[in-house]
Structures are given as structure tokens and as C-alpha cells.
Design a protein around this nucleic acid. Structure first.
Ligand SMILES: NC(=O)c1ccc[n+]([C@@H]2O[C@H](COP(=O)([O-])OP(=O)(O)OC[C@H]3O[C@@H](n4cnc5c(N)ncnc54)[C@H](O)[C@@H]3O)[C@@H](O)[C@H]2O)c1
Ligand SMILES: NC(=O)c1ccc[n+]([C@@H]2O[C@H](COP(=O)([O-])OP(=O)(O)OC[C@H]3O[C@@H](n4cnc5c(N)ncnc54)[C@H](O)[C@@H]3O)[C@@H](O)[C@H]2O)c1
Lengths: 213, 213
DNA sequence: AAGGGATTGTTAAAAAAATCACATAGGCGT
DNA sequence: ACGCCTATGTGATTTTTTTAACAATCCCTT
């Protein structure tokens, strides 16, 4: 499937965006779309789109464009999100609970099959039909549950500990929502979600805009 | 303060990261840090850090490094986050409530002073001492409250409507948590928070890793 | 007060990414 | 069946970003 050695990380980010926009277009009834129109909807350059897609194959039809549903399927296949991924969530607080209630995870193929916390008052509680388990038992349980991805929503000072449990459990990827860096072996892919980067960016742009006027 | 015309967006993202890591280092008692050590903690190149900082000025001392507290202050000043930003949140659902409960926003200078929803059952409810107001009244209320930044946590199909209210209210920046693109005038800065991009990236890296073995 | 050691700030080089430009090829109408 | 039209896929070019290298300079010791 893959035609090139290295794929820019920015390309992956855009592919996720294309899927989002394409699904909106599909809901609106579009069956075919050109790179130019998709580019407009995504606010990127049309060549960019064609190049991004070319990393994985020729999904379009010359003179016509891309068949929307087909393209969605192709991109998802390319990204490896055309299947179910089993995930574990560590840290059942405000954010953890919001994520657990969010149906979109399941809809997009990410099934949270294990929930872990260290708080004795939370252990045993049921959320969405799944029992909260003591995080010390994560290494043993995650294997049983066939978990491949871990979501960390603990306070930042506990993020490394949570990560250690996940790594011990043989997990392959981590998405960390806590504002803390994590040390992990090479083969474990770690992604950081940081809302504040976006807020800072907005604040900076507003400040900049004003100083320019 | 600004020494150069254009600052790469990636630089802004890293500056936010530096602040996060520096605040951890400060808590651990560090008073001075070299670009080399900070680079290791942030997992970037030391030259990168020096270059990023150089866009805004010379914050370090040759032969010594950077004074941690001083650097935090300087970066925050450069980004324009050394002051209070008044924000409004639109859409009081799962995610909206989790954000409202999150004390970190206030700690970092982002004060949510207005909460809006269109659901009559939610209007009037109090969250953290602030009353939920009908989103139709946003344009009028946001001005009164001196709001400059809007946070959108409505369902995706309502994101544009929420944005329109915010734009009408004269807001300057938007952080959109809903998986939908938003049309906004040039002078309004829009940032998109998309968890799934991170999940897709992890899934892709795991899939890739396996196909390489 | 002067020299040594260390780390910055900055310029130059390399690498990566985005954009352009166009030949290529599929579909559709005649 | 043939040619025209259109939008893709891709090699060349430009731009941006990252990395490397080093001269400048600041502190500290003697
Ligand atoms: N709430 C938000 O909107 C929000 C937004 C952005 C980032 N975050 C980040 O997400 C993280 C969680 O935020 P929150 O508001 O949900 O906090 P919270 O305090 O409500 O929840 C944290 C949970 O983690 C559990 N925990 C602590 N140590 C643990 C461990 N070692 N193993 C397992 N569980 C452990 C606690 O028992 C608690 O249930 C924080 O790092 C926060 O900075 C939160
Ligand atoms: N819950 C999560 O963990 C999570 C994670 C990532 C992204 N998101 C996104 O965040 C958004 C909100 O998610 P949620 O789980 O909180 O959904 P939710 O349904 O719980 O909440 C949505 C809220 O928005 C309100 N609303 C709808 N239309 C509105 C309008 N025009 N003006 C003002 N308010 C309006 C609704 O009344 C409701 O209170 C969604 O777009 C979702 O995709 C949620």
C-alpha cells in the first residue's frame, strides 16, 4: 500500500482532516469531489491534497475527481483506522469521564475496553457498563483485554506512572492528555494533546494583530 | 519586542511546550537551564530552542544558560499570555462541563466569564458561580462581559451557528472543539482541537511499525 | 584585572515541505 | 471510435524549517 519511505507527520494530520471534511460532504450528499473543492473546504492547497494522497496510491479518476465514499475508505485504510482498536483509559476524573461518555470514540473504531484509576472510591464504579479497575492491576488486565492503545487522563504528576503501567502491559501507543512529558521506549508511540497550545496561539495572534494596526 | 516579520506556527507551538516543561523544572527547584538540557526535556534540538527564543529577543546569558523563572516570564510576555483573557464557552455538554470544571484555565489566565447554551433546560443553571445564558443572547452579553475569545463545544452541526454568534459579538479568536470547519472573517483567528488526529497518528504509527518488522 | 571555560545568539548549510506546472490519462459527447 | 475537456499524478522549483557550526560574550576564578 505504502509507496514511499517516510511520510511527513503533517500529512497524517491533514489526512485526518480530509476524512472529517469528506464525511461532512458525504452527509450533504456529495458523491464526487475535486482536489480543488476539497482543498477549499479544508483550507489547504489543492496540490497538497493530491501529493498527500499520492503517498498511499492513486485514489482519484483523472478528469473527474475523487469518489467521496471510496476516498474516505482508502484514507482510513491507509491510516490503519479501518478496524477496531482496543484502548484503555487511565484516570477517571472530569476529562476521563467526558471522554468515556463521548460516543464518537466508538463510532470511529476506538473501543475503550478498560478503565483504570487509583482512587479506592472510584474502583468498582461502573461507567458505560465497564467497571473501574485499580490501576495497579493494569499490566495484568490490559493483556487479557487485548488493549493496544492507552489514554492518560491523570493529573500531570501521575502521568509517568500511568505510562509505566501501560508500557509494562505491552501497549504500543499512548495519547497523553496531561500536561507532562513522558519517557517511553522507542517502540511506543506517544502523542500529546495540549489544549493550551491552541489557546496560546489564539492569544498570540490577537496580540500580534493589534500591534500591527 | 518582536524582531522578525513572520514567526513559524511551529515555533509558537514549541514555545507553549517550553513553558510547560520549564514550569515543571521550576517546581523541581531548577533555577538555571541550558538550551541543551531544556532540549532534552522537550525532545527537540538545542539550536531550535535558541532560534525560537531569538525571534523574540535574547533571554539567555552566554556561558550560563537561561534563568528559569525569567525565561517563563519572557516567553509568556512574547506570546501575549502574561495577562487575563476573558473567554466565553458555547455548548454546556459533556466536554463543556469538563472544561468548566478544569481549574487550569483560570490558573493560566483564561477566565471563562460567560457560558451559553440553547437548551432551555440548561439555561439558568449555575456552573462555578456563573449562570448559563441562552446562546441567542450571546452577541449582546459577550460585549458586556468583555469577552475576547470563544470556546465552541457544541455538536459539530451547530458549530457554525455558535461561531456566528461569537463573530457577531466581535470576538477576536475561537477555539473549536467540534469536528467541523468554521467559516470566519480574516481578522478572527480560528483554532481547531481534534483528538482524533492524535489517535489516528498513533494507530498509523503502530500499523506502520508492524508492517516494517 | 585578565584569562579560561561555557553557552549563547547568529549566520550558513542542509533537509524537508509546500507549491507550481504540465504531461498523462480517464470519461463523455459526437 | 475518436478527440476534446478536465482533473489527476508527478517531477521540478521554491519556500520554509531545521540543523550545524562558530564567533561573540558573559561569568567566575585566580
Ligand atoms: N478537565 C479538563 O477539561 C482538562 C482539559 C485539559 C487537560 N486536562 C488534563 O487532564 C488530566 C485530568 O484532568 P481532570 O480534570 O480529569 O482531573 P481530575 O483530578 O478530575 O481526575 C484525575 C483522575 O486521575 C486519577 N489518578 C490519579 N493518579 C492516578 C494514577 N496513578 N493511576 C490512575 N489514576 C490516577 C484520580 O483518582 C482522578 O480520578 C489532567 O492532567 C489535566 O491537566 C484536563
Ligand atoms: N465529550 C468529549 O469527550 C468530546 C471529545 C472530543 C470532541 N468533542 C466534541 O465536542 C462537542 C461537544 O461534545 P459533548 O460530548 O459535550 O456533546 P453534548 O451533546 O454533551 O453537548 C453539546 C451541548 O451543546 C449544546 N448546543 C447545541 N447547539 C447549540 C447552539 N447552537 N448553541 C449553544 N449550545 C448548543 C447542547 O444543548 C449541549 O448542551 C462535540 O462536537 C464533540 O464532537 C467531545
Amino acid at each position: 500500500m505504502l509507496r514511499s519511505e517516510h511520510i511527513p507527520r503533517a500529512t497524517i494530520k491533514r489526512l485526518a482532516l480530509y476524512v472529517q471534511v469528506l464525511e461532512t460532504l458525504k452527509r450533504e450528499g456529495a458523491e464526487v469531489i475535486s482536489s480543488e473543492l476539497l482543498a477549499k473546504a479544508c483550507d489547504v492547497n489543492p496540490s497538497q491534497i493530491r501529493k498527500d494522497l499520492a503517498y498511499f496510491g492513486g485514489f482519484g479518476v483523472r478528469g473527474v475527481g475523487y469518489y467521496v465514499q471510496e476516498l474516505i475508505t482508502s484514507i482510513k485504510q491507509s491510516l490503519g483506522v479501518d478496524r477496531i482498536w482496543r484502548a484503555a483509559l487511565v484516570g477517571v476524573g472530569n476529562l476521563g469521564k467526558a471522554l468515556l461518555r463521548h460516543q464518537e470514540f466508538r463510532r470511529r473504531g476506538f473501543h475503550i475496553v478498560g478503565i483504570f484509576d487509583c482512587d479506592p472510591f472510584k474502583i468498582g464504579e461502573e461507567i458505560g457498563g465497564i467497571e473501574v479497575i485499580c490501576s495497579k492491576r493494569l499490566p495484568e488486565k490490559a493483556g487479557e483485554l487485548g488493549v493496544e492503545i492507552g489514554l492518560i487522563t491523570t493529573p500531570p504528576e501521575r502521568a509517568q506512572r500511568a505510562a509505566n503501567y501501560l508500557i509494562e502491559a505491552g501497549i504500543k501507543g499512548i495519547v497523553n492528555f496531561a500536561p507532562a512529558r513522558i519517557a517511553a521506549p522507542e517502540h511506543v508511540c506517544v502523542e500529546y494533546v495540549d489544549f493550551f497550545h491552541h489557546l496560546y496561539n489564539v492569544a498570540f495572534n490577537i496580540t500580534l494583530g493589534q500591534s500591527q494596526r
